[in-house]
Design a protein around this nucleic acid. Structure first.
Lengths: 341, 341
DNA sequence: CGCAGCGATGTAATCGATTCCACGAGGAGG
DNA sequence: CCTCCTCGTGGAATCGATTACATCGCTGCG
């Protein structure tokens, strides 16, 4: 592969001049510029990004560590992150932690070794020493979706409290009183926050949330199935199951179906995170939709601000309830709550 | 960030010795090794992968260019690729082409500039000059899922012909005679092959496939919707719509539902590519399942073989039909065709 | 006792870029 | 006509690693 030296030789100038032409430095004669450009074209020369990064100490690359690529929510997040990053002149390297802290560390370490300019993380756990060290050491970093309390890193996320309250109001109106939740890991902020928001909303209606109706999941479909089976085995099964993410809702659907029960007649279902497939499930699933694309874009902007010396800001955007049929009664379209069915 | 020089100084040895310790070179005294390791730990030193890559001309990184991350099929493929690559000591950088040739070129160029060791591609089109040049120039490369004819690059893919034949047999048995297909872009191999397989299978049953029942899609949900609407507007709408990928099937489902029609009573539906959600759609969708994970792993193995000087082999694995309810008649479980519902 | 050979180590070249500095030519101003 | 600046250019240092080669001290064998 041709290097800058080959170009210089072929154009009859020094490597310094070639570099200047390539970087748009003003003080190059029109004649030299032309010869360099011709040589570049003739040789099909492309600058070696590795060498350039070594010299400039910049990779123009962001690392994105997410908890689970197979979760459509994170897939969409990753996509919007890449899009915005590209618009700002950065590339993105994705690390998929698969909800496993040690895999998350593997990726963080790998990205750091590659000297990425900044790190976008949706932590799988409460924060490994590695991640805390990186943050402390001044690695430009932004948390997205989930975050680690007590670390001085901007957070870009959705606030689902209002939407959860709307959901509980919706459920109450439909006559449901025994509500249950499949929670995410307590070590994640989204895992604990969603339970808290749910509990608070229930309290407003004077409804209890006994421990038996709080199932411990791990954001994966299988745990949703397992927890739901537990709920169905209770002496008094719940009227509604609220899954803290879309994969656990899928598992719940599996479990309900396996018993030969029907949603919403026998048991209602709602989920956090809306995805295109929820429109076509049987029945369409009522869900809380995050502004995923906007979150990804805002996170990139914050991180790039930090990298380029500006002051990044935390961002919180509202989530909203999307009513479908999985909790009963076909939705009556209204300006506020409209299903996209 | 500490460099190898700092470690050398702190351990009281030369950088060469540090490098030797780090790379497991045998001729280092136990004493020196110990002091180096201590210094590494004390400084929290991590080798700079950029510098190392420049010197060794290896990045231990594979590029993966796929057509659409939002498509669950490709998401799963990407995941299995990363997994196998990690097991073999490589990292993966994903480029999402979004079914846009110019975006695909952007990513190929970006990956090449980063001097990745090899490229895994599922081409969005018939092959841009950039990609053809890269292949000709000897960049280690492997095609996965889709490929470009006439280029000497190993291909790892699924053969869906037998499964398509099974599907047509299934449809015929259910009494369907007017079959239609939503095809992918003709410039992609999967786009044209699936139509051909379908046409060949229909021929075996003496069924025609008039042009009016071949809709041109682009593997995105919106095109599935549009094409399906066209089918429904025909004087004689088809009995069955077969979508060449899962997103177009989603669009088709949208279109059918928007007309107030029912699957499979009014029109049946089948799709290429099986995904977990198809179990829970209304109705569950009959699909052709590819061995996605195995494809990803085989592709990585082939590419790494090529990179490490062994001779890579093309691989073709069979796809299989998964019968569910979207074409009519609940499936009767049999040893050969079993739904995972 | 002398020298070959080996093990441990350091010096320095190298990868491909960027960039500081020096230098020469040419124009402007005194 | 001389000096000073500016512009265009090239030489060389530099980034952080790897590695060929040189060196030095020992050991072992003849």
């Amino acid at each position: 592969m041709a290097s800058i030296k080959d170009v210089a030789a072929s154009a009859g100038v020094s490597v310094a001049t070639v570099s200047r032409v390539l970087n748009g430095h003003p003080s190059v004669s029109a004649d030299a510029r032309e010869r360099v450009l011709a040589a570049v074209a003739a040789l099909g020369y492309r600058p070696n990004a590795v060498a350039r990064s070594l010299r400039t100490d910049q990779t123009h690359t962001l690392g994105l560590v997410i908890s689970d690529v197979l979760n459509p929510y994170f897939t969409e997040l990753a996509r919007s992150v890449e899009e915005e990053a590209r618009a700002l002149g950065y590339s993105v390297i994705i690390g998929n932690a698969d909800e496993r802290p040690e895999l998350q560390d593997h990726h963080v370490r790998n990205l750091l070794d590659r000297r990425i300019d900044g790190l976008l993380v949706s932590p799988t756990d409460g924060g490994s020493p590695l991640m805390l060290d990186a943050a402390r050491a001044g690695t430009p970093m932004v948390f997205v979706d989930r975050w680690i309390p007590g670390v001085d890193v901007p957070v870009v996320r959705a606030d689902g409290r209002a939407a959860v309250r709307d959901l509980v109001a919706h459920l109450y109106r439909l006559g449901h009183r025994r509500l249950a939740i499949i929670a995410g890991p307590a070590a994640t902020t989204t895992g604990s926050e969603r339970v808290e928001a749910f509990r608070a909303a229930l309290a407003e209606y004077g409804l209890p949330l006994p421990d038996a109706r709080i199932g411990q999941g791990d954001f994966q479909a299988e745990s949703g199935r397992r927890v739901t089976e537990g709920f169905l085995d209770l002496p008094q099964p719940p009227d509604v199951v609220f899954a803290a993410d879309n994969l656990m809702a899928l598992g719940a659907l599996d479990a309900v179906r396996a018993r030969g029960l029907r949603v919403p007649d026998d048991i209602a279902l709602a989920a956090f995170d809306d995805i295109p497939w929820f429109v076509h499930t049987d029945p369409p699933v009522t869900a809380i939709a995050q502004p995923t694309g906007e979150l990804g874009r805002a996170a990139v902007r914050a991180l790039v601000d930090r990298i380029e010396g500006r002051t990044p800001r935390s961002v919180t955007l509202p989530a909203r309830l999307v009513v479908r049929r999985s909790c009963g009664e076909p939705p009556t379209p209204s300006p506020v709550q409209r299903s996209t069915t």
